[in-house]
Amino acid sequence: MLAAPSKLKLPKGSFKAYLFDCDGTIVDSMPLHYIAWKTVLAEWNCEFGEQTFYAWGGMPVSEIISALNVRDGLAMPGEEVAKRKEALYFEILPELKAVPEVLEHIEFSHGQIPFAVVSGSTRDSVTSSLEVLGLLDKFETLVCAGDYERSKPDPEPFLIAAKRLGVSPEDCLVFEDTEMGIQAATAAGMASVKILQPWEREEHSGT
């Protein structure tokens, strides 16, 4: 029998489903998303600091643009900026890599319990990211921006995923890289495991 992956310590419990955030959790895409954001927002003279970007991780693209408009008194057209940002992300998508310690658990547990992706990104973005890494067929369902009315930290996205999988919330384990996501999981009555941000993984490995 294979030994369970050891890089990522999971909370104790017998879970019946794994719910994964996508960006920064399954795929190490946050640096690529940040490049796309910086590029498109520079066209509008809008500053988007790295700390703010990571703090807002899990927010749908449309909400980020609205928040920046309010913060800076701008009138960026939401749909246009969102499409441009997505296009820029897709251009650099071939550089995408998986988060190793999460990939271990996906490969180890696939076929034993159902998986779902619960993301603030668009379905196109999530699908493309997972396809690049050959992981799309490992997930029973994708819950993406547009599938819910209230985004993380509201529990709605995770509760939708649990319902689609036919699993009680308390039997789900959530993999998340943002505080917003962890709060949503907790509000949904689910256990969670926090994935380190890119710079935290570097510090952890001593590089």
Rank of each mutant, 00 (worst) to 15 (best):
C22M: 15
Y54H: 15
W199P: 00
P157I: 00
I64P: 07
L88F: 15
G73D: 07
P153V: 13
L96T: 01
L41H: 02
V102F: 03
F115G: 02
K138D: 02
D171I: 04
I64K: 09
F139V: 07
L19P: 01
I35K: 12
S125F: 05
G73H: 08
E131I: 09
H110S: 07
M190W: 12
S205W: 10
A145S: 14
L93R: 09
K194P: 09
E43Y: 11
I160Q: 03
V61F: 09
E43C: 06
V117A: 03
A55Y: 09
I92E: 05
S119M: 10
P169D: 07
R164T: 01
D23G: 05
A42T: 10
F175R: 06
F90H: 15
M30N: 09
L8E: 03
C172A: 14
L165M: 02
G13R: 13
Y148Q: 01
I160G: 02
L68F: 12
Y89S: 05
Y34L: 06
D72C: 00
A67L: 14
G57L: 06
E179G: 15
S119R: 02
L159Y: 00
E79L: 13
E47D: 14
E170K: 07
E149K: 10
A185T: 06
V81F: 13
N45V: 07
P11G: 12
M180W: 01
W37Q: 06
V143H: 14
T178N: 02
M190N: 08
L74W: 11
D23E: 07
I65F: 06
A67K: 11
P77G: 03
S151A: 08
E80W: 05
K12P: 13
D23N: 00
G78M: 01
G73V: 07
Q183C: 07
L10S: 05
D171T: 10
L32F: 11
A116W: 11
V132K: 11
F108Y: 15
P5F: 02
D137M: 12
K97D: 12
P198F: 11
S66R: 15
V102M: 13
L8Q: 04
A185N: 04
K152H: 10
C172L: 00
M59N: 09
K85C: 05
I92A: 04
I65K: 05
T25S: 13
Q197W: 03
W56T: 11
K138V: 14
N69Y: 04
V126D: 08
K163C: 03
A98Q: 14
Y148V: 03
A42L: 11
F115N: 10
K152W: 09
T25C: 15
E91W: 01
I64C: 14
S129M: 06
E91F: 10
G134D: 10
N69K: 11
G181K: 11
K16L: 13
C172Q: 05
E140V: 06
R71L: 11
P114K: 02
G73C: 01
L19R: 00
E50N: 02
L96Y: 05
A17P: 08
P157E: 00
W199D: 13
F139T: 02
A82V: 12
A184T: 10
D124E: 14
G13K: 12
G134C: 01
E95W: 08
K194S: 14
V118R: 09
E47G: 00
